[in-house]
Measured scan of single mutants.
Amino acid sequence: GQVHVGDTTYHFPNPEEARKFAEKAAKENNLQVTQHGNTFKVE
């Protein structure tokens, strides 16, 4: 799974890890998570 936060892309071998990371980043920054397959975008 990939997580895009601003201009930075994080790669995770496990989509579940990617999702947890995205949700945590979104919560900390008052942002939203959008999911496209195994790619998550925090914005």
Rank of each mutant, 00 (worst) to 15 (best):
G1Y: 15
G1D: 04
G1P: 10
G1Q: 05
Q2V: 15
Q2F: 15
Q2E: 11
V3E: 01
V3R: 01
V3Y: 01
V3L: 02
V3W: 02
H4N: 08
H4W: 14
H4A: 06
H4Y: 12
H4Q: 14
V5E: 02
V5M: 14
V5T: 04
V5A: 04
V5K: 04
V5N: 03
G6M: 07
G6F: 13
D7V: 08
D7N: 14
D7Y: 11
D7R: 13
D7L: 11
D7F: 11
T8D: 08
T8M: 14
T8Q: 14
T9K: 08
T9W: 14
T9I: 15
T9D: 03
Y10D: 00
Y10L: 05
Y10M: 04
Y10A: 00
H11C: 14
H11W: 14
H11D: 07
H11F: 14
F12W: 02
F12M: 03
F12I: 01
F12N: 01
F12Y: 03
F12E: 01
F12H: 02
F12G: 01
P13E: 13
P13N: 12
P13G: 09
P13A: 13
N14S: 14
N14M: 04
N14Q: 04
P15N: 07
P15L: 15
P15K: 12
P15Q: 13
E16W: 10
E17H: 05
E17V: 07
E17Y: 05
E17G: 04
E17M: 12
E17T: 08
E17K: 04
E17C: 11
E17I: 07
A18L: 00
A18E: 00
A18K: 00
A18D: 00
A18F: 02
A18C: 05
R19N: 03
R19H: 05
R19W: 06
R19Q: 07
R19P: 00
R19G: 03
K20L: 13
K20V: 12
K20P: 01
K20D: 08
F21A: 03
F21M: 02
F21C: 03
F21L: 00
A22T: 01
A22P: 00
A22M: 01
A22I: 03
A22Y: 02
E23H: 10
E23Q: 10
E23Y: 14
K24N: 10
K24F: 11
K24G: 06
K24E: 10
K24Q: 12
A25Q: 11
A25D: 03
A25Y: 15
A26L: 02
A26W: 02
A26I: 02
K27H: 09
K27R: 13
K27W: 09
K27Y: 10
E28G: 07
E28P: 06
E28T: 08
E28H: 09
N29C: 15
N29A: 13
N29W: 14
N29H: 14
N30L: 06
N30R: 08
N30K: 09
N30P: 02
N30V: 04
N30H: 10
L31D: 04
L31H: 07
L31T: 08
Q32V: 14
Q32P: 06
Q32K: 14
Q32E: 08
Q32A: 10
Q32R: 14
Q32H: 12
Q32T: 14
V33R: 00
V33I: 11
V33E: 01
V33L: 07
V33G: 01
V33C: 09
T34D: 04
T34E: 05
T34N: 06
T34Q: 07
T34S: 09
T34P: 01
Q35Y: 07
Q35L: 06
Q35M: 08
Q35E: 06
H36T: 11
H36M: 12
H36K: 10
H36P: 01
H36G: 04
H36I: 14
H36E: 12
G37F: 05
G37T: 03
N38F: 07
N38Y: 07
N38E: 05
N38T: 09
N38G: 05
T39Q: 09
T39I: 14
T39M: 12
T39D: 08
T39E: 10
T39S: 12
F40L: 04
F40N: 03
F40Y: 10
F40Q: 02
K41E: 09
K41D: 07
K41S: 11
K41P: 02
K41W: 15
K41T: 15
V42E: 02
V42R: 00
V42Y: 02
V42S: 03
E43A: 12
E43W: 14
E43P: 04
E43F: 13
E43C: 14
E43Y: 13
